[in-house]
Amino acid sequence: MGDVFRKLGSLAISGVWQLGFIARFFVLILRYSGQSFMRLHLTIRELYFSGVLSLLIILVSGLFVGLVLGLQGYEILQRYGSSEAMGTMVALSLLRELGPVVAGLLFASRAGSAVTAEIGLMKVTEQLKAMDMMAVNPIARVVAPRFWGGVVSMPLLAALFSTMGIFGGWLIGVVFIGVDDGAFWSQMRAAVDFRYDVLNGVFKSAVFGVAVALIAVFEGYDCVPTAEGVSRAITRTVVSSALAILALDFVMTSFMFRGL
C-alpha cells in the first residue's frame, strides 16, 4: 500500500518538475524570439512546413466532418420539422468546437510530431551542440522559428477547417437533400454571432496552437538523444498535445459559453 502512495507521489512530483521545465523553456523561447524575428525567413520557412504542408489533411478532414455533420444534423432536425436550422447547427458546432479541436488534434499529429522528430534528430546527430559551439543559440535559431510557425498556422488551419466543414454541410443539406438554400444561409447568418462564436473559436485555436507548438518543440529539445528516445518523444508529443487540447477546451468552453 505504501508503495502505491510512493509511486503516486513520485509521479506527481515529476509531473510538477516537467511543468516547471516547460514553463522555463517557454520563457526562454519568448526571450530569444526577438533574435529569430530579425530573420523572418526562418519563421516563414517553418510556417510553410507546419501550415502549408498540413493543408491537405486539414481541408479533406474538414470537408468530411462537414458532410457527416450535415447528414446527422438533418436526420435529427427533421424530426422536429426544423431542417432549415441545419446551417446554424453545422456552423455553430464547427466554429465553437469541432473546428479548433479537431484541427488541433490533426495539427498535433501532422505538424507537431514532425517538429519533434526534426529537433530530436538534430539533437541525436549533435547538430544542436555544434550550433551552440559555433556561438549560435539553438533556441533562437531552431526552436523559436518552429514554435512561431506552429502558433501562427494553427488558427489559420482551424479557420480553413471550419470553412470546409460548412461547405460540406451545405453540400449535403442543400445540394443532395434539398434543404432550401436561402434558409440554410440566412438562418446561419442570423444565429452566428461574430464575437461570441467566431472570435471565441479563433481564440481557442490560438491557445491550442501555443500548446501544441510548445509541447512539440519541448519534447524534441528535451528528448533522450537515441533512436528510442526520439520515438518516445514523438509519441509523447501526440499524446500530451491531444490531452492538453481536450483539457484546455473544456476549461475555455466553460468560461466562454455558459448558456446565458
Binding site: L121, M122, T125, E126, Q127, K129, A130, M134, A135
Partner: peptide, 16 residues
C-alpha cells in the same frame, strides 16, 4: 570566446 574556437564533432554534425 566560442567564435574564436572551432570544434569538429565525431561524426561531423553537419546540418542535414
Amino acid at each position: 570566446l566560442r567564435r574564436r574556437m572551432g570544434m569538429l564533432f565525431q561524426f561531423g554534425a553537419l546540418f542535414t
